[in-house]
């Protein structure tokens, strides 16, 4: 198999584009896909101050690397979730990445700041660890981005993440979630603008980009991930993609093009505890924190 651009031996095949690329041209391909997405969705410009949520995994580190190559002003936030061994190891991957590129990283320790870890929250609330983790990341990353005065919070959700979430929301007809699932969530009172520049890059491609760019990332799965619903959806979607290359991108791209799914963000009341927008009297994060730290 040969590179579509230079005819050298290919390193990565991208079946949905009916193409293969050598190392250098694959890196170019990913960078161009991200750049095109940023422009098409009018995500941000070079004058904006950005902050990316980084986990130590391939997606967020690959995206940060792409934004760095493209010359965007982007700092990072790592939320230490207090998962034995795994959180420390993930942080080490990020700190090496940051040091090699001379980037700025902010670290928030969930336990030090809010008094609980994800394992503690999962145990005391009987939520799945992934649910408590997702809720905490959404809340804390927004909080830090608002306090830091950034123009946008960049997230490393890739094509497969977004398609799997869409698949799950359609299977369960979660209309409210469907209305909020977009590549760009505009800023509103108490919520920073949130953008997902990897929505055109498949998960396998972000992993390939990381390997070919020499980015050392956390390959091991989180020890608490067993039973994760989105992962199960991704495995099903991978089977569909294997049989029909391109189906994942058509599924997500078609959804983004249907305006009627995307209702304007409603004005939400403030949480009586923390003041951030919520649909309830007390927001889900404050309720999680209250139960996780109850003696």
């Amino acid at each position: 198999m040969h590179c579509r651009v230079c005819r050298e031996r290919a390193a990565v095949e991208v079946r949905r584009h009916n193409a293969a690329f050598c190392r250098d041209h694959f890196i170019d391909h990913v960078v161009r896909q991200v750049e095109r997405t940023i422009h098409e969705f009018d995500m941000f410009g070079h004058a904006d101050r950005l902050v990316i949520g980084v986990s130590g995994g391939k997606d967020s580190l690959a995206l940060w690397d792409v934004l760095h190559r493209l010359g965007y002003r982007c700092e990072g936030i790592y939320l230490d979730l207090g998962i034995d061994g795994y959180s420390i190891e993930s942080r080490e991957f990020i700190e090496r990445f940051v040091k090699e590129r001379d980037l700025i990283l902010r670290v928030v320790d969930l336990h030090d700041r809010y008094g609980f870890t994800i394992p503690q929250a999962a145990e005391s609330t009987r939520r799945s660890p992934c649910s408590a983790c997702g809720l905490s990341k959404r809340y804390v990353l927004n909080e830090e981005a608002v306090k830091g005065g950034y123009d946008a919070l960049v997230m490393g959700h890739n094509l497969d993440d977004e398609a799997a979430t869409l698949f799950s929301n359609v299977l369960n007809w979660n209309i409210e979630y469907l209305a909020r699932q977009r590549a760009v969530l505009p800023a509103s009172d108490g919520l920073v603008k949130k953008v997902k520049p990897l929505v055109r890059v498949a998960e396998r491609e972000t992993a390939a980009y990381a390997v070919l760019s020499g980015i050392d990332y956390e390959v091991d799965e989180c020890p608490l991930v067993a039973g994760n619903t989105v992962n199960r959806m991704k495995e099903w979607m991978a089977l569909l993609e294997h049989r029909s290359p391109g189906v994942t991108q058509h599924f997500l791209g078609g959804f983004y093009n249907v305006d009627s799914f995307h209702a304007p963000t409603p004005v939400l009341p403030s949480c009586e505890s923390c003041g951030r927008p919520t649909t309830a009297t007390t927001c889900a994060f404050c309720r999680l924190q209250e139960r996780a730290t109850r003696q």
């Binding site: 959700h157 998960e203 992993a207 390959v219 799965e221 991930v225 992962n231 495995e235």
Partner: peptide, 8 residues
């Protein structure tokens, strides 16, 4: 053979 599917 490195898996690429990860939770998020």
């Amino acid at each position: 053979v490195r898996p690429v599917i990860s939770g998020g």
